[in-house]
Simulated scan of single mutants.
Amino acid sequence: MLDRLTFIENKYEELSVKISDPSVMANQKEWQRLCKEHAELEPIVNEYKNYKTILEELQDSKELYNEETDKDMKDMIQEEIKELSAQQTELEDKLQILLLPKDPNDDKNVFVEIRGGAGGEEAALFAYNLFRMYTRYAENQRWKVELMNSNETDIGGLKEVVFMIKGNGAYSKLKYESGVHRVQRVPDTESSGRIHTSTATVAVLPEVEDVDIEINEKDLRIDVYRSSGHGGQSVNTTDSAVRITHLPSGMVVSCQDEKSQLKNKEKAMKVLMARLYEKAEAERSAGIAEDRKSQVGTGDRSERIRTYNYPQGRVTDHRIGLTLYKLESFLEGDLDEMINALITYDQAEKLKLMGNSDEV
């Protein structure tokens, strides 16, 4: 591990010189790329410098302990050695996590797709609850939410909703949300007070650039139609809504949120690229051995990941066995505790898979 850290520190110093060079700054695209790489290495370098300082202090304390003859002073130095050793271990753990391979999609914006599953109207109402939950969470993170397409029911539920969340690190935090979400509650329409179980599926896709995936125009069928609102009511007198069908895969993407047909087409193409990218990534990783998949979950939309139990006021994530008794605030977007637990668990599992082969 020390060799890797030394290499990274040297690379960081080289980049520091380059981004200060006027000749490099003249090429804005290259300069921005180098600045981004420099910023990514900075947290690792800072922790490594702290680590080296602790090692030096620890070495000095051990030498002083061996030279000291006064018992009280030796006891004081021994306590200091104990504290420094604890700091050393803590920094080693931090550095191991910082050295884990970075998901290239972590910094990207995301598309979130929510669809009502089993449970009819109650499932659609739950899909709306999830949409509101993620919107609230995005607001708490100061991210921007942009609606792409929605299909409402007559009583305010959502059969389907597709929206974009723009913000730094959006994918790194929301990527664990893909899967089947289950709700257990008494519906408003249930007169006997019987608890119903319904589901909704969530898919979180990273936004992809044109360079990430190529789409042949000949493979697309583009249809335009009038936007429809609540209960199928027409809300637009022009054919501004767009439906794009990717013929080879059969994928269909619709967008009707904008009044401009061109803007709706641009949004629909972004969603299509994200879906095709996800499909390609899934096919690429299909051959990976089961024991090397992330233990937090594969992100498969068929996998039940979480239960929201209203009578008990709890939310349980089945992948990590975590139950929080704060359903109300959770549905208001207070997701940090759950998401942080998922990130920590994922990091721990990745460290296990690496076998902790790097020795300090």
Rank of each mutant, 00 (worst) to 15 (best):
A286K: 14
D291V: 07
I222Q: 09
E56Q: 15
S20V: 00
D346F: 00
G355V: 04
N216D: 15
N309P: 07
S260T: 08
V161A: 11
Q312D: 15
V45M: 02
A280Q: 15
M133Y: 10
G299E: 06
D346P: 03
K11V: 00
R306G: 06
V186L: 01
V242S: 05
E146K: 09
S357L: 14
P206S: 05
Y51T: 07
E57W: 01
T135Y: 11
L342R: 10
A86Q: 13
L262I: 12
V145E: 05
E40S: 06
V17P: 02
K352V: 10
L351F: 08
K263P: 04
Y225S: 13
E281T: 05
E359Q: 14
D60C: 06
Q347S: 10
D60S: 14
Y345I: 03
D60W: 02
T153V: 08
S191V: 05
K102L: 10
D106R: 12
A341S: 15
K293E: 08
L335I: 01
L342S: 03
Q96K: 15
L55E: 15
I288L: 14
G287Q: 06
N151W: 00
V242G: 01
K218V: 06
L351Q: 10
L2Y: 06
G229I: 04
K265D: 11
K279Y: 09
A280M: 13
E83V: 14
A26M: 09
A280Y: 07
M148Q: 10
R221Y: 05
N340D: 15
K62V: 03
M269H: 07
T189N: 05
I81Y: 13
V208W: 03
R314W: 02
D317E: 13
R132A: 09
L99A: 11
G193E: 01
A241P: 03
L55G: 09
L272K: 08
Q78L: 14
L324N: 07
G169L: 08
K263H: 12
I8Y: 01
S294I: 02
K71W: 08
V211F: 10
L276G: 07
M269A: 08
I343V: 13
K29P: 00
S85M: 12
K259M: 09
V45H: 04
E207P: 02
G355W: 12
L351S: 07
A282Y: 08
N216E: 13
A348K: 13
E177G: 04
E146V: 10
R185K: 06
